[in-house]
Design a binder for these strands. Sequence first.
RNA 1: GCGGCGUUGGUGAAGUGGUUAACACACUGGUUUGUGGCACCAGCAUGCAUGAGUUCGAUCCUCAUACGCCGCCCCA
Length: 442
Amino acid sequence: MITKPKGTKDIHGKDARKWQYIEEIVSNVLDKYNYTLIRTPLFEASDLFHRGVGETTDIVSKETYDFIDRGNRNMTLRPEGTAGVVRSFIENKMYGDNLPQKLFYIGPMYRYERPQKGRYREFYQFGMELLGSDDPIGDAEVISAAYNIYKMLGLEKLKVNINSLGDSESRKDYHKALVEYLKPHINELCDDCKERYQKNPLRVLDCKVDRDSDILKKAPTPLDYLNKESKERFEKVCEYLDMLKVPYEVNPRLVRGLDYYNHTVFEIDDTAKDMGSQNTIGAGGRYNGLVKLLDGPDTPCMGFAAGIDRVMVALDAEEIDLDVNDDVDLFLMYVNDEEKSYALYLCQELRLAGFRVDTDYLGRSLKAQFKQADRLKAKYTIVLNSKDLDNNEVKIKNNKTKEEEIISIDALIYYLDENLEDECDCGDDCHCGDDCHCHDHK
RNA sequence: GCGGCGUUGGUGAAGUGGUUAACACACUGGUUUGUGGCACCAGCAUGCAUGAGUUCGAUCCUCAUACGCCGCCCCA
């Protein structure tokens, strides 16, 4: 038997409905912020990620899915979303359109890693990018949008960490200072940190092992080296976050793994137990240098990305059961051929009218059809009967109340409309019919 | 890239170096029922991830491979 590749998964059944629901919330919320969807290719020229994400990052140096296509081009399955969006921004000359450009994406990303909880080789992210604004309100808004999406999904145990790496000048100063500070202490650090010191000294800061040691507690942080401008900027971001009532914590030792960040960086964790070691459900920051690095005009940007797989883990850890509706409205039963063809027709009419309708496809006995209706949690059932059909009538049964009614076929749509309308359980006494966006109220 | 544990039917799983691989749920058929949901009866793994080895004989022991889960690294 051929099985799916390592670290991938099939999403189906009730889970698939949950995914759809999450994606719907993301789209709806970001639509209110006036972000528009952008879809970029799942694979790009390898150079895009080598230059954009950073040659020395682990993501690029050891986790990409690379392949050579039949035209001998080096291609890479995208390991993250920002590089592709920026490439598209430049290639389509969006910098010439109204700025800022406010874009969001949802889709699969690929990293060649050992799978574990909340981590797959093919995983899903949604993200947003604000391109062309350097104003701190953008930083605050992106963070709050991210926060609000999680809240909208019902997540409560959120922790927002923010920090500032400063502009390139501040960052350079700090880097130098940190290396000098750590140099005499090198042998007291854990083995991983010895390696980090060589490769990416900033990462020593959030080491899980040495985090509590005096060496790191006393180590300089990026905040200590912000120049005046960067510092004022960061204070503004915090001020705006207060205004937006986003609870956050300044974490001076927060650093990010991708090279393109500067100024504001942030991470949103879910603090519920059972999150495993992957408790970061989203992260982002400002990347003012990236567009220019990729040969576009110097354009300041702010962005965010969330791991949908991890959001699913978080929902699970917080024991939130997304209330997805997978019940069918009506199950149609039949016995003989005449009824069968009429069932086919009636199904179509009701579906076009907007109801979720199902029927038997296996020539099952009436008893088995009733069982099937129960399994599908049909709200209503109809057993087609030749005599009733001759009278242009059907007997419809409410499966909850067990009440049966004989109504004319012409009135069927109206009947279902009336009776299914108040099925909405958003708790807000809403009488939205088909176009229900009840979760908007929650 | 490194480490630990795991892999038995549609599902959850018990189990043993040697004829018929427990039990439950689900599923299918039947009986009963004023057209089902209850009850009862019957059916449902020639096979225990794959490959090789040890053995008279392996699902059970050994090794390798694949996949899964968890952790490290790293990251969403």
